[in-house]
Design a protein around this nucleic acid. Structure first.
Lengths: 232, 232
DNA sequence: GAGTGGTCTAGACCACCCC
DNA sequence: GGGTGGTCTAGACCACTCT
């Protein structure tokens, strides 16, 4: 494990253990340098990581401060931290090999005669249905899938067994109305609001290999995004 | 202007001028180093910037590649790049000094006896209403506001005239149903879906000074988020 | 094994905040 | 003006990809 990753973790732990709150000041660079016996750049790299994950913010000439979310119970739309989600379970509805629709073929950047794995799941939080998830995997990349794999973590399997690495992803959000089938799955009424999140996951050559369409229950799901200001 | 900012801009321009597409390979580090006559770290910093703004992705041992969004007409939920938005106009509905509600006081971290500036605007894209925006500014930070300022860019005024700098912000998303008044403003029907985005903007001491509630027209607005994978 | 990006160091100097 | 974070350099060494 990289030095600056380790250090970032330790600083994160430090914040947690000291129960620091938003705006609390952390020790200065110099202190961390001597404490971990590494160069300045390494500490800066570690702090950069924490900054990116929205754990801290840094003010030049002033110091390093703790950053905390005020509201709880929200889902991150940025998968920076892959924190474990308890209370979440899922049910498999469909799993088969099929030809893509025009839309799916377009999103996966493949021809309509190629094969895709189709996976449809319902996801539950505290046993309440909060999301319908439909995924389409390019079969030439994801060569094999079965029930057991799908019920566990697909991404973990892709990485460990197939050596498929996600390099980046794009998410597209729409708000719309539920149709009858979706409403039934989510325990809502047709015409009720829904949040639709389309995602494409890309490989290291920039090609998408997974297109996912997520339909969220508007009563069970709230989201957050954190950002940094740079209005010039 | 910082060296690595300049270089990032030049590389961005290079991508644009060469009309490179997703997955196209960029020249290697060494080439950029000699081309700009700077050290390796500086180039890496520049590429880090481009990486953060989702213009490129880097694969160790392989190279630097162009990244592009597939869909157009979407609004970024990350204000990394503050690109100019044409076709967007706004109408001022209300502007006054008032006492905050409990909710607003809580979001601004102030007492209910303190003053806030209240600004209500409708935002139009291609002359279609796409957003109702209600903002509450802590008066002890934003000491003065008027009609002219509000119709121009508030954030620019805050930075230039009042020396108020946004360091970070949190966004919270909900999906819900429009009430009668909102529906009228947006040209929709009560009960139609809406996307609600609450934002708090924070100063360098971590304190929020602006709480904004944005209600989006679900037919006129679509959003995107880009991310990087790191499933371990 | 050659090519390529990433980490890490040590140190000079700079830019900003705040007293 | 002292304290503090940020930029930049030069170079050693490491880790991954691809053929």
């Amino acid at each position: 494990m990289l030095k600056y990753h380790q250090i970032a973790k330790k600083i994160e732990k430090y914040i947690e253990e000291k129960q620091l709150n938003q705006g609390d000041k952390l020790p200065v660079l110099e202190t961390w340098m001597t404490h971990f016996d590494v160069s300045k750049s390494t500490i800066i790299k570690a702090l950069e990581l924490l900054d990116k994950n929205e754990n801290i913010f840094q003010i030049r000439g002033s110091g390093i401060f703790v950053r905390k979310l005020k509201r709880t119970g929200y889902i991150s739309l940025q998968i920076n931290d892959s924190k474990k989600k308890d209370n979440v379970s899922s049910k498999l509805l469909e799993l088969d090999l099929r030809k893509p629709t025009k839309e799916v073929a377009n999103n996966l950047n493949i021809g309509m005669d190629e094969d895709v794995y189709y996976v449809k799941r319902i996801r539950y939080i505290f046993d309440q249905p909060f999301c319908i998830e439909e995924s389409y995997f390019n079969k030439s990349v994801v060569t094999y899938l079965n029930k057991e794999i799908v019920l566990d973590s697909i991404f973990k399997y892709l990485q460990d067994a197939l050596n498929v690495k996600i390099v980046f992803y794009d998410s597209y959000l729409h708000v719309d109305k539920l149709n009858e089938e979706e409403a039934e799955h989510l325990g809502l009424k047709p015409g009720d609001p829904k949040l639709l999140v389309d995602q494409t996951f890309h490989l290291s050559n920039g090609q998408p290999f997974d297109f996912a369409r997520n339909t969220y229950n508007y009563l069970q799901s709230q989201f957050f995004i954190q950002g940094k200001g740079q209005y010039i």
